[in-house]
Write a protein that binds this DNA or RNA. Structure first.
Lengths: 168, 168
DNA sequence: CACAATACGTCAGCTTTGTTGACATTCCAA
DNA sequence: TTGGAATGTCAACAAAGCTGACGTATTGTG
């Protein structure tokens, strides 16, 4: 291989066996169910779906973002996003304002009731995350994030990094 | 709080801040896209979807499993699974055999061509996983798994544990 | 200025994958 | 023999993605 790994090959590379990789794959699959379970419950009561949650989340994270920007973050077509966005605007959870410099753009913001739903959803999701973090400890959390980041596509990682250090 | 944590509170609990939790949530969202990207590409060429992949994966993992068992692992309705299963059986990727003891049950196996597709899919998914594991290192991988396991629902974790240590 | 490109919205139609509800069949077990 | 469990199937529907086409501002450029 000649890539500078392989210290003594006793335990060190066992984490790269197919068996270990399979466990990781299944852990990822099963964990993602838990990850979305709590928000899904809340959303279904309000007859929204995961797509609405994602839109709300990233509008909250990047207030004033444009439709195009949101599109590339979410990785869906404008038609798909538009359907979701339209209902959120109609329901008064999201405000869309014409751009001041570029009037073709629409800037998206959460209204107070949109922010309230955002908080409800992210509280629920954070609660589970917090419990998992607490159970696993800080070192595990660092590793968790490292592996996830390494798993992303190039372009996706750019989006992730771009909003990584923006304060709340 | 009185839960035995809080050693000196300097750095130790920073991994539980809302900010850290949010980063974890976004990392999970973005990483899952990478996680499914490669199999998705292969599947779309064959006009299959993620649901087919999941069925194939777990039939491979538990050869001879029943429909009911698969149902509870996947967490979908029998109607939903049945549609996927039917196309896989029609296309000759999965074999369904009547149970010998309980003839109501159907036991599911991959055919040679089903096994070939399974290998193609899991090879692609493992490649990315392996790269991520290699980049992050063994300690990070251990943490990754710990956090994911702590994130699962109770019932889901049972499924995960049940096939955790079954050899390849 | 004229024209091309961009940003956005929308209509129509299609696919995948999930859901309920209803109903039939088969078979085990009390 | 009868009730319940396991399976399968039909129908109808919804969420959320897709492509393609078209319209309308608005902006940038030659």
């Amino acid at each position: 291989m000649g890539d500078g790994l392989q210290p003594q090959m006793g335990q060190s590379l066992l984490f790269l066996t197919d068996e270990q990789l399979r466990k990781g794959i299944e852990a990822m699959f099963f964990a993602y169910r838990g990850f979305t379970a709590d928000p899904d419950r809340i959303l279904s009561e309000k007859s929204y779906g995961r797509a609405h949650h994602r839109a709300i989340h990233f509008i909250h994270r990047s207030p004033g973002t444009t439709v195009n920007n949101l599109l590339s973050i979410l990785g869906v077509t404008k038609q798909s996003l538009n359907r979701v966005l339209r209902t959120l605007i109609e329901d008064g959870l999201v405000a869309s304002t014409v751009g001041r410099q570029d009037k073709r753009e629409r800037h998206l913001h959460l209204t107070p009731s949109g922010a309230a739903l955002e908080r409800e959803l992210s509280d629920a999701q954070r609660d589970r995350m917090r419990a998992a973090y607490r159970a696993a400890g800080p070192a595990a959390v660092a590793g968790f994030r490292q592996v996830l980041e390494a798993m992303m596509d190039e372009e996706t990682r750019h989006h992730y990094e771009a909003m990584k250090d923006r304060p709340e």
